[in-house]
Simulated scan of single mutants.
Amino acid sequence: MMWHVIEDSSVIGTANGMAYFAAAGYSDSPGPASPHVYWWNGTGYEQLTEVSDDGTVMIRVSPGFQAVLEKVMKG
């Protein structure tokens, strides 16, 4: 399990790193694990990643997560 507190623009690089780490851990795991990264939006978890059929990991930005990103980018 990984955690990152969203405080500044470092969240962008961190989210990418977490997405690839989760996907790699999923493929290397001997038991059940999720290949996804989730964001706690204050009321529940929201899935941020998608894995395509060819294994490409993409981050999906919802309107709520976009608002958080814009807020921390402004400083």
Rank of each mutant, 00 (worst) to 15 (best):
Q47K: 15
H36N: 15
I6L: 02
G44Y: 07
T49M: 05
V57C: 05
Y26W: 15
W3I: 07
Q47M: 13
Y38E: 11
A15K: 02
S10L: 12
V68N: 00
M18S: 03
K74C: 04
I59R: 10
K74T: 06
D54A: 14
D54V: 09
S62L: 07
G25K: 12
A23R: 14
L48S: 03
S10Y: 08
V37Q: 02
V11T: 03
V57N: 08
S62Q: 05
D8H: 03
E7A: 07
L48E: 06
W3V: 10
V61C: 04
V57G: 03
H36V: 07
P63W: 09
E50W: 09
I6C: 01
G55C: 11
M73H: 00
L48I: 05
Q47I: 01
M58Y: 09
W40R: 02
A15R: 05
Y26L: 14
K71G: 00
P32C: 06
E70R: 05
T49A: 05
N16V: 14
T56L: 13
V51S: 07
G17N: 14
V51Q: 14
F21V: 10
V51E: 13
A24G: 10
T49N: 04
G25N: 15
A33H: 13
V51M: 14
E70W: 00
G75P: 05
A22I: 04
P63A: 09
G31C: 12
N16R: 13
L48H: 02
M58T: 11
G25D: 14
M73K: 07
W39S: 01
S52Q: 15
E7Y: 02
A22N: 06
A19Y: 04
Y26G: 10
F65K: 00
A24N: 11
W39C: 01
R60Y: 05
A67D: 07
Y45R: 03
M18V: 04
A15N: 08
Y38Q: 06
M18Y: 09
S34K: 11
N41T: 09
E7V: 06
V61T: 07
P63K: 08
G25L: 11
M18D: 05
W39I: 02
V5M: 01
V51C: 10
E50G: 09
H4P: 03
S29R: 06
M2G: 11
